[in-house]
Design a protein around this nucleic acid. Sequence first.
DNA 1: AATGAATGAGGATTCATTCAT
DNA 2: CATGAATGAATCCTCATTCAT
Lengths: 201, 201, 201, 201
Amino acid sequence: MHLPEKLTAKQERIIESAIRLFAEKGYSNTSTAEIAKAAEVSEASIFKQYGTKDKLLLSLIIPCLKELFPAMADEVLHTVMSKAVTFEDFLRGFLKNRVEFISENREIFQVVIKEIVYKEELKNELLPYLSEIVTSRLSKVIAFFRERGEFIDIPADTILKMLFTFVGGFFVSRFVLLNLRSIDDREIEDAIRFVMDGIRK
Amino acid sequence: MHLPEKLTAKQERIIESAIRLFAEKGYSNTSTAEIAKAAEVSEASIFKQYGTKDKLLLSLIIPCLKELFPAMADEVLHTVMSKAVTFEDFLRGFLKNRVEFISENREIFQVVIKEIVYKEELKNELLPYLSEIVTSRLSKVIAFFRERGEFIDIPADTILKMLFTFVGGFFVSRFVLLNLRSIDDREIEDAIRFVMDGIRK
Amino acid sequence: MHLPEKLTAKQERIIESAIRLFAEKGYSNTSTAEIAKAAEVSEASIFKQYGTKDKLLLSLIIPCLKELFPAMADEVLHTVMSKAVTFEDFLRGFLKNRVEFISENREIFQVVIKEIVYKEELKNELLPYLSEIVTSRLSKVIAFFRERGEFIDIPADTILKMLFTFVGGFFVSRFVLLNLRSIDDREIEDAIRFVMDGIRK
Amino acid sequence: MHLPEKLTAKQERIIESAIRLFAEKGYSNTSTAEIAKAAEVSEASIFKQYGTKDKLLLSLIIPCLKELFPAMADEVLHTVMSKAVTFEDFLRGFLKNRVEFISENREIFQVVIKEIVYKEELKNELLPYLSEIVTSRLSKVIAFFRERGEFIDIPADTILKMLFTFVGGFFVSRFVLLNLRSIDDREIEDAIRFVMDGIRK
DNA sequence: AATGAATGAGGATTCATTCAT
DNA sequence: CATGAATGAATCCTCATTCAT
């Protein structure tokens, strides 16, 4: 995660502690006093830097979102699509890439998910924006493979919805609900198989 | 929802207000004063009835959980399995039944999901219990249809996991994230098709 | 001062303490903790009742203003003017009446003056309103005595301004700057003489 | 205003900002952070220069007081008294001179008045001192014109008090309450007439 | 000489909870 | 039984001030 550079040791401890505590107990159940204590700084230092508790949250969440979603953007997509790969290969690359990213930023991911689910306000601000990004990017990919005749005959945006539902459920259940460190290759393969072929014999 | 019967008007107003507010803003961001005001009772009345704010939450969540998960238990399962239905039929019945139940109890469902995601503590108490219930019940069903040869050749509990992931994502994304009133039949059919056959041609 | 009736003992102690401390140190230099301590109540009790520190201030100031200015309204004015009195008599009655009122409410008067002088915001809200009340009431009186030929030949509103300047300075210097308990009759007579005849032989 | 010479640009910006903000919102409602921001210096610079916020206030107030009151001292008084002028002429010169001075230093005057009214502590330190200065200087003047037979037969210090009350009210109401930039000659003449002859025909 | 970083002490305000009536 | 009154403990946040660089 590319957080603003040139933080002092104390400032780094603040964001570390904040992420850890927000991930563990949720933003609303974490007091600035707790963060200060965990970071071994004064509360005042937190407010000097971030102004409000809310801005502290945003300053953690936003860089994560920027990498979580648009990262799979042009670079990734184009390279993948230019190669002679199947959608299954693309999906495999995508899942492995995102699993790796989330594994490395598991706590921030937890914070992001928890707060999007919990804070109506934040959700309403972010969801349309995220939905737009995801849709616009992925719909190209779907369209690309669809024209190649790789998918069964259902509308592209139905495919998108189902994928989104499953992949979202996949990441959230593993990284947030079960609090797993990572997801192993075997499970990724299970997921890919499920997505590609379903469960019917 | 079978909440304890014989509630006075005031008691009903309290739980209605609590559910509405918890669903909207989350338990942590709702004060007992707000609930009291919305329910047009004194704060003291709430505490007389429920002892603590936490017990109030539990008294809303627990009846919902009891119906949400175990409801699909013996009655449903046995009847379904006894008939000569395919897994697809079972899944259709199950989804429709649960969509109906959640539609009618959307706000409580939102509270349940939000708090399970948010409160590590609550999650740790409930997840093993829920997981046990779901697993024990559904694994019988899976095993039943598996023996009938309806599934591709993957372990039963992999099937269970994938189903759980997808169905959970399905309900949460629609009823919590998107705050939909219900899910129409067409989308249910899309989901069934996705689960059964995946997306590959 | 007619403050809202039916205050509990604690509630009365709150307003007493607030008035005393605001008068002594000014609103901005008095913390709610100090008020609570002086009143021997919890800070929470103050906020339960008044919501904010600002509303507490207003709830002290407004009843005082209502009596301070419009009190000299219809009752006083009409009776005075109906009698065959001179302006000097009217002024004497007015000054004595107001001195008595302020003596009895010296601390609130101090709070009112201090905050009007100090808080731009409060001043801008109150001054136009007060000015309107004073002007509309007193200009009638001035006009009345002016037609009787009691005044030298200067515009009525010049007389009003000079009176306001002097009487304001009189009350503020004595009751606020010098913190006097009251103003004795001799000084009132000096003031009347000054207003009526100036200082030139 | 003769503030200490040789101020660097930064130091000037500090006192300008401080005066402006103190005049506008009052000392207690102005933070050193605000001053630093307005002056475009670091807070630390303010404290390096002035030690404490209180000393900053005093360093603004004291030079003003020195010119506001004693300025009318020896030079002014003697010259005026030596000429064959009436008290009315003296008063006219005095008022015009003070109006000019305050007009040019309106904001500092506002700070001085506001803080004297507001801070019991400051008031108690300054009032006896100021009163002594004013009394000792002006009582000579009053005595001078009194012996010339210009005044009606009331004690000199009663005249002094009334003058002080009116002139104080005059300046404060115009420059502080109404926040006027200056006072025009017509109003000064009205004031002089009022002081000299009162309002009785 | 100037400042960015840091903070202890205190600021107003909110909260879940208790209890006498 | 219901509630108005009351509160201790916490919450987020601000402030004047210090100090190493």
